[in-house]
Design a protein around this nucleic acid. Sequence first.
DNA 1: GCCAATCATCAAAACGTTTCGATAGCCAGT
DNA 2: ACTGGCTATCGAAACGTTTTGATGATTGGC
Lengths: 338, 338
Amino acid sequence: MSSRAVTIRDVAERAQVSISTVSHTFSGSRPISAQTRERVLAAARELGYDANPSARSLRTGRSGLIGLFLRPRYAVAGTPDRAETFNRLVGSVATEMLRRKTGLIHVPDLHDPAVASVPMDGCLVAHPYGSDEVLAEVQRRGIPTVTVEEDPDRPELAWAVRLDYPRVVTGLLEHLREQGAREITLLSGTEDNAWNRRPRQTYLDWCARIGIRPRTGLLSEGLSGEETAARARELLTAADRPDAFVVCTCDSAAVFVKVAAELGIGVPGELLLAALTDSEHGRVANPRITAMDLNHEVLAEQAVELMFARLSRAAEPKEPVTVDPVLRLRESTARPPH
Amino acid sequence: MSSRAVTIRDVAERAQVSISTVSHTFSGSRPISAQTRERVLAAARELGYDANPSARSLRTGRSGLIGLFLRPRYAVAGTPDRAETFNRLVGSVATEMLRRKTGLIHVPDLHDPAVASVPMDGCLVAHPYGSDEVLAEVQRRGIPTVTVEEDPDRPELAWAVRLDYPRVVTGLLEHLREQGAREITLLSGTEDNAWNRRPRQTYLDWCARIGIRPRTGLLSEGLSGEETAARARELLTAADRPDAFVVCTCDSAAVFVKVAAELGIGVPGELLLAALTDSEHGRVANPRITAMDLNHEVLAEQAVELMFARLSRAAEPKEPVTVDPVLRLRESTARPPH
DNA sequence: GCCAATCATCAAAACGTTTCGATAGCCAGT
DNA sequence: ACTGGCTATCGAAACGTTTTGATGATTGGC
């Protein structure tokens, strides 16, 4: 388009002043006479001057941009459930950042040397894994970081927002018991993050407390529908079939409902079903599925707030901010259905 | 954290070479002996060196980042319908960019001088208004731009992805007629963009073609539930109430259903209802609402592809890429309900 | 055993800002 | 008339890269 970008030098020349005067005019860091200011502003306007952001941040050491890393890599391709989680989280963070008039960067793979690195003043790492390597890397680089959910192996990092799983997962388990469930099986996802680890621990603690035998298993949150169905068939035809399942995603729960129907097992009549994250699947399945909504919007809002606090050199909090997930009770655990 | 960032100079010193040698080692732009390369890489590793992205882009003139502007400003705060549109679009663009290992920046207000400007090699402007000022501004700055949906006042900009409204909106209108509707009212949103203008034009053309009197109106897509309800009550109690409404959002359609029920008007029995964008509201309302899904995922994918083509200096296409919206037929227009 | 070509490296000049010490002009106080 | 203290401006030095012309050192052809 234009042959050459307009620089501060062009403005200075046209306004007949030095480049430092132009700089001061814009930044207000030194007094400039009204007359000179006018000339400079006019020149800038006429030339269509815009400061070069790279030059500015090279000099100042700040870019005004915050990076966002979303850790489950396969969220990107993902299942419908994944896509919804991704979209809600990314959307909420973006909304929050826009409200604060600060740019947000989705950072591509930091470990890929082919990828140009990115100028960020701070970064958010969402849903880190245990001993997360990206988290470690940004810390190594000295970038101020806030995590959305904690690295389960590094609970000491207090610049974090975390979900109150014990309260809500216990609430779900008690609800299942009230609805008549005696044998509850928990199927966790296989990604090693807080969302899988902590509800599982809460379940184990709860079982110990009320004196029942815990029944756990794994069910990868990335499985295809067919794979999940095969697994469901296996579990639902076992001799010691439980009377309630808590599974990781609504995608999986919906498959369980379908397989149960094929086997003539009524939900919620003979089997209760709940998921540890909510999604479209849970809201439109028949019956609709009880799920724990991870409250991404509030999580994002708090994380961004924490990020800004950190950047303005607030003291490190004593412990992470806690956000409540929301239990969405639906027909899949309602006996009789309402 | 670290007292001082590690620069190329530190690496050069430790490896006992000049800084240009270090640079060449990383960029591969000149041959470096195996022995020297080893020393340099070792020094970089030991020191934890990472190139400063601002310095690099100052020098090269490229940042490796693409900007994203989402034009409906109030999408950010917005209604549920808005939030879903925003999340799907932002999520899809982000996903697409991550796949291509390029950073994506959500750009805050370009016109706010308090906001640091942002280094971008190109930018996407989504859902521009008529004679969009942000679009004009980025073009003035000479930033290669691709639009998602066209600026309705500048159809000549061919670096764009647009929806095929005529085909799908006509399909919807014919469907309504097949279902028995004789008087169809179209209520457009009030934001001046392609999504509001083009379906309206398609409707007017269709009416003219089949020889019926067009009935149009406006209904702001940003209205609160109460405001929409008041408007709905007014329209549904009018003497010449039509037998079908096409409204802008599912949020609005859901309110229409509710008000109709209060007035004893059955949907779809006595009134058909459809929306020009799909959302959660449409999928869980009772009856579920027929809607046009704007296919944000494909739109985003195509737009990103076009952006990369443009950045690699491909020739300007003769006309915009066209994507089909998807008609989601549901109970609100099904007579009798299936 | 010399000339040309090739190879590996270096030094210096950008890139466009911000920052900061220096300076010229001016006025008030002695 | 000289000093001291403002005010408005300038000049130059960074910030950390990439790029490119120049320069020794090594090779190969004769």
